[in-house]
Amino acid sequence: MINIDWQKVGTLVPAIVQEKDTNEVLMLAYMNEEALSLSLKTGFAHYFSRTKNRIWKKGEESGNTQKIHSIKLDCDSDTLLLNVTQNGGIACHTGAKSCFFTEILDDDFKTSNTNQENYRPKYNILDELYHVILDRKLNADAQNSYVASLFKKGENAILKKIGEEATELALAIKDATKNNQDEQTKSDVVYECADLLFHSLVALSLHNIHPERVLNELSRRFGLSGIEEKNQRNVK
């Protein structure tokens, strides 16, 4: 029987995931009590995403699910070890077999990266963009990456771009109205809206907020009148 002090772990217990045949460490994730219960009930790994702020089944989008063979609890009752079959052979969203492919210290005391698989699992475009932006934020050279250059300039530069893109979108919409919504001006509206959304994702990643949390908020509001939703905000 698994006895976890959920208060001690702040409601989230780390879960180390190993491949059944090789014992290779594939990833580190987190489970809350519900995610653990779903994992035990279904036999497939479920985790709690701290960025998406929800429970997710591993492979729910990519199809690379994890069939659980065993779950062990460590001596302090605050870490789980999962032994799984990694369906599809890919655990990492980058397309790599394991999430641990970046070497900080190798035999020559040099920093290096191993080659990732050419195949990348399919995720929705917002999730893909968000992870690319995070990668640029952490690893890219500001001389070669537009996103990295924004992060280097700081929050004010990112917010300024959002303001500029919002203005350009508003002007494009006005032009579409003026030109009776012809296809060219409609395309301009789409283009400017994409720019605004992209820079909004950059701002979200500045604070490690996954875009799915925004989608969840829209889902929460669905069916509420605008007046009712605003009134709810004012309730302390």
Rank of each mutant, 00 (worst) to 15 (best):
T42S: 15
R54Q: 15
G10S: 04
W6K: 07
I68Y: 05
K41P: 09
G63M: 02
E19I: 06
A15L: 05
R50D: 02
T42P: 12
G59Q: 02
L36E: 01
I55R: 15
V17M: 05
N32A: 00
S62W: 02
N23T: 12
E24P: 08
P14H: 04
Y30I: 03
Q66F: 03
K58E: 04
N23R: 13
V9N: 03
W56M: 02
I71G: 14
L40P: 11
I55P: 13
E33I: 08
N64Y: 00
F44M: 14
W56Y: 06
A15M: 07
L73M: 10
A35P: 01
V25E: 07
S39H: 04
Q7N: 15
N3F: 09
S37F: 04
L40C: 11
I68L: 09
L28F: 06
T51Y: 05
D74P: 14
F48Y: 13
L73D: 07
E19S: 10
M27I: 05
S49D: 04
L28N: 11
A29P: 07
A35M: 00
G63W: 01
T42C: 08
H46K: 06
L12C: 05
S37V: 06
V13D: 06
E34S: 12
E24A: 13
L40A: 08
A15D: 05
A15C: 13
T11H: 14
